[in-house]
Nucleic acid binder design. Structure first.
Lengths: 343, 343
DNA sequence: GGCCATATTGCAATCGATTGCAATATGCTG
DNA sequence: CAGCATATTGCAATCGATTGCAATATGGCC
């Protein structure tokens, strides 16, 4: 077995080996031009030879920057499992890539909305320079508090225009309107809404649903809105149970997420209901699987790529003394088989 | 607007306010019984009143522990997007929850397998006390190196029994064997394998596939093994293109992941091939969506919950001076519609 | 040769906690 | 009341880097 240096190298070791002071070594390693070019070369070479890595902790303490962003995924206490929705994975992946590109580390935390204070945990303790909060959840008052406390943070959620902190998110209302208008254009007359409107993004989608119906002169029926968790299972059960009595007269469903839509689709097909002929179905998100179920799922595509990049960009700008602004991202209707009635 | 303390509190502020020394304050905050109970009470009260949080950076520097674990998700350079497979999300969620429960923070990193050295980035720099590596990828030699360098780490991957570092993973070979034996029992004679065998977990699954065929006296055909990325799209394209000429004589497909299987299913249905009557299909993982596609997908369930907990437990044991051992987790065949030919 | 500008390097303080050891106070024993 | 054990607290060093400022060296100019 190879003998490895028992202790990890410190800057002072490198300095000694190079025959310079710690300050010179420190500057040389960061390629500070005030240091003689040859000295820099030499120090860097020695550091590389000994696999020296700057102790991030010491640096953070001294510079008062952690170069770390905490990403907090909020979820309902009742949903036990933390991260379930594939959509979260999408946006999380983009954020991770983007933070890496910008030289930041990412602390990931899933937090029950009832949990203790993650602001002070991550920010006051200097674990992170800023926060990205995913999902405002059901009007979480703690998010409001953040804005007062001088914590740099951005939220992925519903930008209603009234909140006092930067929110980036899809134009949920418009997306829902597109979806429902599309269903109406396909001839649907009675359309159910599956989604939990206590969640602010979903609330916006429900508003869009109502907009579209009213624009077509249809009065929304409250009993066609069914609170449904973000899982295929919830979509399945809700369709099978709550919608059962209505199924006969229903000819469209707008689900607040693709996962819910897929659950609903399963229930419909099991009941022998033909999709889209008897009942047309539209989801929201455009997760990867949506194109590959049968029939493939019409949905509203969220631009996760733009969203993730924007979240990171805004947060970093805020951290560097600038402002972070709310922004509404355009969405796009992706028409697939689940809603397209030929001719 | 509320006036907030301009500067964050430090231990020395608390000490001054409480009229004690920093050392007493430090001990009091951690409830060290050597400090008088009343003093402890007082200091803790003052700290709470001022929302004081210990500076994690300073503590880490002094104690030489970060109380942070880095989770590295390896992926192929060619697959651009970082985290795509829903299965990853499952296990990641479990790990996140478990680390939180144990009082550790989680640094998440997605890394192209070709990327620079994440061992030294996370460990030598003291950003993390240990590493959880997900996916050995295509025999990554860098993982081997870790074992020599005294870095506490565990791998989620294929425990072949020959590796010199702790690997925790499903019994892929057995799982595949279960799946293919099941297909054979359903009357399949000619079964294709969709999955990239350069990836060691998939290689094990391929071995299990071969085991099952040979046990039934069938000689595996090399051309029925098709390297396929972990996406529905890849499964779809591979089935549509590479398997096209064989489709007539094929009556079974074993896909190395559920995502691949769903892509394959789509292609089959588009070709008018009846699943499972003409062709039976089995996947691997048991992601949430598998139960809700139509026909629902028979698959091999990986115990992500046990896996995640075990990864964390073994790593922490290793960090605390103990040993971490490899372990093979049992899997279970979940029979659903995509492979069940009635009677 | 004297003087000043410039280039290069090092000293020492600092970031905010933790901790070994010494110091002090208190109480009990014989 | 001396003497020692115990309870409680504080001093000062330490973790490993960064950085303002001072110190020194070098070169050029008149």
């Amino acid at each position: 077995m190879t003998i490895k240096p028992a202790k990890t190298m410190t800057l002072s070791d490198i300095a000694r080996l190079a025959g310079v002071s710690e300050s010179t070594a420190s500057r040389a390693l960061r390629d500070n031009p005030v240091i003689n070019a040859q000295t820099r070369q030499k120090v860097q070479q020695i550091a590389a030879d000994h696999q020296f890595k700057v102790n991030a902790t010491a640096r953070s303490l001294r510079t008062q920057k952690s170069h770390t962003i905490a990403v907090i995924i909020l979820f309902d206490a009742k949903t036990q499992q933390a991260i379930t929705d594939p959509f979260l994975l999408d946006i999380l992946g983009v954020i991770a890539d983007e933070l890496t590109r910008q030289g930041y580390d990412m602390l990931l935390s899933t937090s029950k909305t009832t949990d203790k204070d993650w602001r002070s945990y991550y920010f006051d303790s200097k674990r992170a320079d800023g926060l990205i909060v995913i999902g405002q959840g059901e009007h979480d008052e703690r998010v409001e508090q953040l804005s007062n406390a001088g914590v740099p943070f951005v939220v992925w959620g519903a930008a209603t225009g009234t909140e006092r902190f930067p929110v980036i998110g899809s134009d949920n209302r418009q997306g829902a309107q597109l979806a429902v208008t599309h269903l109406l254009a396909q001839g649907c007359k009675r359309i159910a809404f599956l989604g939990d409107i206590r969640h602010s993004e979903i609330e916006m989608r429900y508003l869009g649903y109502q907009d579209a119906l009213q624009a077509a002169g249809i009065q929304p029926e409250a009993k066609l809105q069914l609170n449904t968790d973000f899982t295929a299972q919830a979509g399945y059960l809700q369709t099978q149970q709550a919608l059962f009595s209505e199924l006969g007269s229903l000819d469209g469903i707008f689900a607040a997420s693709d996962a819910i839509a897929m659950g609903a689709m399963k229930a419909l097909l099991e009941h022998g209901i033909k999709v889209p002929q008897q009942l047309a179905l539209v989801g929201f998100d455009d997760i990867a699987m949506s194109a590959y179920c049968t029939p493939s799922l019409t949905t509203v595509k969220q631009d996760t790529h733009a969203g993730g990049k924007l979240l990171v960009a805004q947060l970093l700008s805020r951290i560097n003394g600038g402002k972070a602004a709310s922004q509404l991202l355009p969405v796009k209707l992706i028409e697939r088989q689940s809603s397209l009635r030929k001719e």
